[in-house]
Write a protein that binds this DNA or RNA. Structure first.
Lengths: 261, 261
DNA sequence: CCTTTGGTTTCACTATTTGAAACTTAGTCT
DNA sequence: AGACTAAGTTTCAAATAGTGAAACCAAAGG
């Protein structure tokens, strides 16, 4: 069993393999994948063949290695443009970065993990897709907690089940109970803190991006360092962050039906 | 069967459905997909459920519509970073755009179609992923012909079989024979023209990006308008374009093995 | 209250997937 | 050379997972 868990059907397995190739960050040989995949040789082989035949992977005939295929690149683009908040949020992130001068993160929930879909870096100015796309833990990041706080019960349960609760720093909330209490506090307060829970010296203030019906669409955060500022100072910007989150939510919702009958 | 053709196994069908959602460019209702998919109700339903469960699609509970999921966004990052030439080519495209002042396209072959993976626009300066990702026909674009000219026989055959040969303009090469003759000419010349074959008034000069072993990795083109320049003037830049294509190829090949035993 | 439309579930039938094992190549060592 | 070894590919009967017509449910409309 890979770290993944429940792979329903052949499709699930195939997608597992895709992920496996993606995670490697470069061309992989068959035997390499074999050691990591828990699938028997023949099965893995057939899955790779199918994915390659479908254009989701590409087999480099010179080196005998697999890499992500062009069809995936195409789908990927569509996903980025349609599904993520990034294209809508872009100008707002720019504004927020300008106003605060701090690092801005835009994240979405991905099966219990946090997926950063866009970012503005305080130091290096305009960086985009290449910098985004990273994933991180949910239980010890501002955006992760902000989103979890507003998840419906079943989704929250699913997310909780996938948290590893590793104590990154002395401040990490490393238990289910501590986290649940924190989520209550976040709902009461309206925004989430990261009090050096993931990395020492790094603090942030995060707000969820909610649809009109209350569904969690993503989260937005302003990150800084203890060397440069304090929680209170960051908190003073919370209203502005919340305001921008609301704008993003509104635009995302109105954009959801470009043309319909 | 569906318009797609050979869908091998369940995985193929699931990917078909993914494409279907992607092609719509926005949230789709179940019944919408049903009319387009050729799969029976129950089958489609199950495929959608699997894909949703896997995070490749997302079902918006408010509207009952499907959209591309976050997992795909995550894969997007990996695909963009690893598989496409884009990250390697970026600085070179910038340079080429600066030198020529024209629109630059970087494309790869995707099952008989051309996938634009990056672009520099003459008018609006820096645009990235959001602008790239489009697909287009191969038989009537400079990059498409440049790549086809260097495809091995079987791949060329497969690509040809997928061309629609629609006569977009009076100059379009709208037959297999005309195209094959053109491909010979391209090999002799070393670069491809687009003589207003796709859109009236649009011309371009394209070169293939070839690996050391001669495999087609992609193509690079400089596009302009008849109003602004002539084929001859564009042709004068061919050596520079070819030079940059060679640089990209070289870097792509040396970057193929970041760390290996 | 009856009908339609859009979505979900059932279930017997079948086709696909499975994976241990056998088989190829293509090196490597003696 | 011949004898190992490692990496990749193929086979085939057994088992599983996928299929889809049809029944079902729920909400909207008349």
């Amino acid at each position: 069993m890979g770290a993944e868990g429940h792979a329903d059907g052949t499709v699930g397995k195939a997608l597992d393999v895709l992920d496996l190739v993606a995670r490697r960050g470069g061309p992989v040989r068959f035997s390499d994948l074999l050691t990591q995949s828990a699938y028997p040789k023949a099965t893995l082989y057939r899955l790779l063949q199918t994915l390659t035949h479908q254009g989701m992977l590409a087999l480099d005939p010179d080196t005998g290695t697999y890499a992500l295929g062009v069809r995936l690149v195409r789908l990927a683009h569509a996903a980025w443009a349609q599904s993520s908040l990034a294209p809508i949020a872009r100008p707002h992130l720019d504004e927020l970065a300008r106003e605060t001068g701090e690092t801005i993160h835009l994240a979405q929930m991905d099966l219990g993990q946090v997926l950063y879909v866009d970012k503005r870096n305080a130091a290096r100015p305009v960086e985009m897709f290449a910098q985004a796309g990273k994933v991180g833990p949910a239980y010890c990041t501002g955006v992760g907690k902000a989103m979890m706080a507003y998840l419906p019960p079943d989704a929250l349960e699913a997310a909780l089940a996938r948290q590893s609760f590793h104590r990154h720093t002395p401040h990490t909330l490393a238990s289910r109970e501590a986290l649940l209490a924190e989520l209550d506090a976040i709902r009461a307060r309206g925004h989430a803190w990261d009090r050096e829970e993931h990395e020492a010296g790094i603090i942030c203030c995060a707000v969820p991006i909610l649809s009109r019906s209350g569904r969690v669409m993503g989260a937005l955060s302003v990150t800084s360092t203890t060397a440069r500022t304090t929680l209170d100072a960051l908190g003073a910007q919370a209203p502005m962050v919340k305001d921008i989150a609301a704008k993003i939510a509104a635009e995302a919702e109105s954009w959801r039906f470009p043309e319909q009958v």
